[in-house]
Simulated assay, not measured.
Amino acid sequence: MTSDSRLTPRWYTTAQVAELLGFGLYKTKALIASGELRSLKDGRYRRILPEWVDDYVKQRAEESRT
């Protein structure tokens, strides 16, 4: 085991996804509300799996090719 105790997140908060994508929080919440970016409700909070962020990016890249 290494001395680095940081863990890779299993899911992201809306704010973390906004930062990852370079979007504002409002735009990220709008993508979630529209269903363009998949999320789940965990208690009071929205969570986004890393693969859902990847899916969104792939979808946008494919749309830009057409």
Score class of each variant (00 low, 15 high):
32 I>M: 04
34 S>Y: 02
18 A>H: 07
39 S>P: 00
37 L>G: 05
31 L>T: 10
26 Y>T: 14
20 L>V: 07
45 Y>V: 11
44 R>C: 14
29 K>Y: 11
35 G>W: 08
44 R>H: 14
29 K>T: 15
19 E>N: 04
18 A>R: 03
31 L>G: 05
25 L>S: 07
40 L>G: 09
36 E>Q: 15
41 K>W: 04
27 K>D: 06
38 R>Y: 02
42 D>F: 11
34 S>L: 06
22 G>M: 01
29 K>F: 06
42 D>A: 13
25 L>H: 05
35 G>F: 12
18 A>T: 10
31 L>S: 02
31 L>Q: 10
19 E>I: 02
17 V>I: 12
24 G>A: 11
34 S>A: 12
22 G>N: 06
35 G>R: 12
41 K>A: 08
42 D>Y: 07
39 S>Q: 06
38 R>V: 05
35 G>K: 07
21 L>F: 06
16 Q>G: 04
34 S>N: 08
32 I>W: 04
18 A>V: 08
45 Y>D: 07
41 K>R: 14
20 L>Y: 03
30 A>T: 04
24 G>C: 08
21 L>G: 05
40 L>Q: 13
17 V>P: 00
36 E>P: 06
29 K>P: 14
40 L>N: 05
36 E>W: 11
32 I>P: 12
41 K>M: 04
45 Y>A: 14
27 K>F: 11
27 K>Q: 11
42 D>C: 11
33 A>E: 15
16 Q>P: 05
32 I>E: 00
45 Y>Q: 14
23 F>W: 10
32 I>L: 06
37 L>M: 09
39 S>H: 09
30 A>G: 12
41 K>Y: 04
30 A>F: 09
41 K>L: 07
26 Y>E: 15
20 L>G: 03
39 S>F: 03
23 F>L: 10
23 F>P: 09
21 L>A: 07
23 F>M: 07
24 G>E: 15
16 Q>T: 01
45 Y>L: 07
30 A>L: 13
16 Q>V: 01
38 R>P: 05
25 L>P: 00
38 R>E: 05
44 R>A: 14
23 F>V: 10
36 E>M: 13
33 A>I: 00
42 D>S: 11
17 V>N: 00
22 G>C: 03
24 G>H: 12
16 Q>E: 04
39 S>I: 02
42 D>V: 07
43 G>C: 11
38 R>F: 02
27 K>Y: 09
37 L>V: 12
44 R>M: 14
16 Q>R: 04
32 I>N: 05
45 Y>M: 09
38 R>G: 00
24 G>W: 10
24 G>F: 12
